[in-house]
Nucleic acid binder design. Structure first.
Lengths: 126, 126
DNA sequence: CACATTGTACTATATGTATAGTACAATATA
DNA sequence: TATATTGTACTATACATATAGTACAATGTG
C-alpha cells in the first residue's frame, strides 16, 4: 500500500503529486501489477482533497495504460511497465535536497548538520 | 552570480522557482550580502518570462527582508539574520529531518541517498 | 538639466488548478 | 432483485499563474 503525502507548499499541483507517487511506487516495487489502489472517494477523503482531483490523477494514468479501472470495482495497477528514468530519479532527489537545504538554512542549519541528523535514520528505509 | 534556470514541466510556478533559486544561492553561499541581482528587465529577458513574473519574485523576497531594492539602482541581497535559540534549533533540525525523510520515502528515496546527495552541499554554507 | 535605467503600479486576458455539487452508469453483493 | 459501491460526467465558481501592454516614479549619469 502506498503512503500518499501531499505538499501544498511545493507549488506542484495535487493531481501531479498523486501521479508521481503512484509512478514512483511502481518503479520502486512498492506496488505490483494487479494491486488495488484506494478508491477515488477514499483517497480524496484521506488526502483531504476533492473527488475530482483524485479522479484527474487516476484518469491520466488510465489513459497511459498505467492503471486499469473497472467501474463498480476499483482501480488497479496495470501491466504496463513503468520506467522512471535514472534522470528523473536524480532530478527528484536533487529537488528534494534543495528544498531541504533551503528550509534548514532559514534556521541557520548547515548541510553538515543535516547529514549528522539524518544518520539516525539510516537503515530505516522500506 | 546566480545561474537561473526554469523548468516549465515541474509544475512549480516560475516566480517560485526564481525565489527558490535566490534563496538557495544564499543558503549555499553562492551569493553574499550586498550582491546585486540582475535587473527585473534583464532577468525577464534572460529567462524568457514576463517582466511581472520576475517582479513578483523579487517583491516577495523584498517583503521578507531577504532582498533590498532601490528604485533606479537595482535589487540587492539583504542582511537578513535569523536569531534562533539552540533549543529551538535542535527541535527544528529534528522536525525538518523527519519531514524530509518522509517526503523522500514517498518517492522511494532512502536516508542514505539523501545523505550522499547532501554531501555535495557540504562546506558550501558559511 | 536631460536622459537612460531601474523599480513600481496598474488593466486586461487566458489558462490551469481545485472545489462544490449533482447525477448517472457499471459492477458486486446480500 | 434490491442496494451499496465504484467510476464517470457534467456545471459552476474561485483563485493562482502568466502574459501583454502601458505608464509612472526614483535614481544615476552625462
Amino acid at each position: 500500500m502506498l503512503e500518499f503525502q501531499l505538499d501544498p507548499r511545493s507549488g506542484v499541483p495535487f493531481y501531479r503529486q498523486i501521479i508521481d507517487q503512484i509512478r514512483f511506487g511502481m518503479a520502486t516495487g512498492r506496488v505490483k501489477v494487479g494491486d488495488q489502489l484506494p478508491t477515488v472517494r477514499a483517497l480524496a477523503v484521506q488526502l483531504k482533497v476533492n473527488l475530482n482531483t483524485v479522479t484527474k490523477a487516476y484518469k491520466e494514468l488510465e489513459i497511459q495504460k498505467i492503471l486499469e479501472t473497472q467501474q463498480g470495482t476499483g482501480t488497479f495497477i496495470g501491466t504496463v511497465k513503468v520506467n522512471v528514468s535514472a534522470k528523473e530519479k536524480r532530478a527528484k532527489l536533487k529537488s528534494i535536497c534543495e528544498d531541504y537545504v533551503n528550509a534548514a538554512a532559514v534556521y541557520g542549519i548547515t548541510p553538515k548538520q543535516l547529514i549528522d541528523e539524518l544518520k539516525k535514520y539510516e537503515g530505516e528505509s522500506k
